[in-house]
Design a protein around this nucleic acid. Structure first.
Lengths: 159, 159
DNA sequence: TAACATTAAATGTTTTTACATTAAATTTGT
DNA sequence: ACAAATTTAATGTAAAAACATTTAATGTTA
């Protein structure tokens, strides 16, 4: 559905305002759909992302800080996410040999199996995005990158 | 910062996967920045958005359902958001004459004044997006719209 | 009109988030 | 080597989100 209809707004003040709202709207759309995929597995999106990070390093473990560095949302509490995954026996925790402050986290076979199962669903799910061609997806990504760049400070004010 | 560096991922499996991550990442970036703007005013993003919806209808009131329909995040509890705004005297609540189940919500002068003050900051803030030209902003919005469209079902499987 | 279904809003409850604080280990500077 | 600073992870806490349930009003239909 178009944003205008969905949020009943006839028009936006500017192209930039519209793009901004559209990013938030699309993000909600994406995460809501994803959550539905993971719900039957009693896994939150964040937990899923942590598992993927752990698999990305498997068979090497990774510290909690390492997880945080790789997470999209740096604010979320990785320590507690790992707790939840521990309860589900998706990960194991052990003291890091080099640094006794740190804790090494490793994904278990059970965790790997779950991810493998989810890969199938995830692949199907990603097809939702295939309204975009490959080059359009790249273009979208580039525009988002550019959006996050601060505009260059103009040394001389142009009329 | 580029996503690759920020989440320490060397590459993505596909352009689509990258675009998807980039949307989530950019959304976090946007909302974090916005939250910082509103924090000194003791206002959450959601509360701000509700106030803007109310201003959009001013001087007409709008019901709680009307607010929900216009919100980006339909799941959030509009009733409680209105509670919070009531405590801050940014809105008033009164029985809807046509339907005694419904409740009309109206933004107060205090609420309008706050929004006016925030408009200035918001405008400054939107400049962050002006790394994009007008036409790029439109293009970005169009790509997001297209992303949310399901791809047309091919009636006949192509080899 | 009585019985049932639906709608609008509020409330209850559990989980998650955001943020501050703590505790232990390590690093740095002198 | 010792004190101070920093780093790593865990924990405490208040607020917010997610989701179900409740209550009252309205609509529907037999």
């Amino acid at each position: 559905m178009s944003i205008e209809k969905d949020i009943k707004q006839a028009s936006f003040k500017s192209a930039h305002a519209k793009a901004m709202v559209n990013i938030v709207y699309t993000n909600n759309w994406l995460t809501t759909l994803q959550m539905e995929v993971f719900k039957p597995f009693d896994l939150t999106l964040q937990q899923y992302n942590v598992l993927r990070i752990l698999r990305g390093h498997y068979p090497e473990p990774i510290t909690v800080i390492g997880i945080i560095e790789r997470m999209l949302d740096k604010m979320s509490n990785a320590s507690r996410l790992v707790d939840k995954l521990l309860l589900k026996e998706m990960v194991v925790r052990r003291e890091c040999p080099n640094d006794r402050r740190a804790v090494d986290i490793l994904i278990t076979q059970k965790g790997l199996d779950l991810l493998a199962e989810l890969d199938v669903l995830q692949k199907q799910w990603e097809k939702q995005m295939y309204g975009l061609t490959e080059s359009e997806a790249l273009q979208l990504s580039d525009l988002l990158d550019k959006l996050r760049q601060s505009p260059p400070e103009s040394e001389q004010q142009k009329k």
